[in-house]
Design a binder for these strands. Sequence first.
DNA 1: AATTCGGGGGT
DNA 2: ACCCCAGAATT
Length: 353
Amino acid sequence: MPTSFPRARRDLIRRQLLAWYRSAQRDLPWRRTRDPYRIWLSETMLQQTRVDSVIPYYERFLERFPDVQALALADEQDVLRAWSGLGYYARARNLKRAAECIVRDHAGELPRAAEQLAALPGVGPYTVGAIRSIAFGERAAVVDGNVARVLSRLLAAPELAPAHLWRIAEELVPRAAPDQFNQALMELGALLCVPRSPACPRCPLSGCCAAYATGRPEDYPAPLPKPKPREVEAISGLLERGNGRQRALLLLRRPSKGLLGGLWELPSVAGDRPEALLASLHERTGLRARAQGELGRVRHIFSHRALTLRVVRLSRPSGRLRPGSDARWCSPSELQGLPLSALMKKTLRLAKY
DNA sequence: AATTCGGGGGT
DNA sequence: ACCCCAGAATT
């Protein structure tokens, strides 16, 4: 039997929530526009990423790529560079591909129809609803982590399936101001109805919240079983050529799919054996080198992997860089122009770059 | 249905 | 330490 809200309760929730949002909402950059491109960009950056982390990236990205056309014409490496440090780099690659689709198939304007939006790479159910409601004012629902938590608490239902959450959210979103309502629901989850120690006394919905009535709102929703990150080891080599003004460092580009796809890194290989690193270096670039001492170790936690990266100095490069091997010698200043992960930025700091 | 994909801020 | 975030794609 589906849990849901009677109509009177639904109207109350809408009114209370919208009234609260009018006075409590944060002044965020993407709330100052209805440009579908900007809404789309903000929603993409906000996937699994906190507001405070996104803001500077959002501003810089728009300076660099002010509209769909600019993004469609851009070089993917430049897009990745603008994303460098934000994480989940498939978002950036998909965003750029989607911009090309929008120029080619939709005359450069984001489509309004759910099916056409969902066909764009990187645009899933949440982003479809967000663009349709916020940019176009359509009555479309959103379910993100915030909404799931708020609904779970309002109903004191610890384990609502996604399909059920979507049905509830679709019933709840009003025709009148779906953009304000959806953002209000998420803002409530972000500011008051937070995972732990929710601010129920300040919540406009505490009067009709079943979880609040139980006295233990933080018990909802039920926590997901958390697989802890698997420990992995890798080794990277710092290989320099020349000195002074001529000084250059060897960087390799990762394959465009998978972890940190398309980003640049020091020559690296799984494990901790310098011999394996040298063999991999030769296979990938045609270069040979000698292994010197260890520079240090970098510890980096991804959500699903805990990496210990051993960094060794390499020396005496010989041979010629094979053309088309996605490798290049970079001066320290050229380094700033490459898309790098937070891990590699950390690693390069260790190596005084 | 599970797993893969980053990074960081709050507690 | 642990949690989890304005999720989507892949397997």
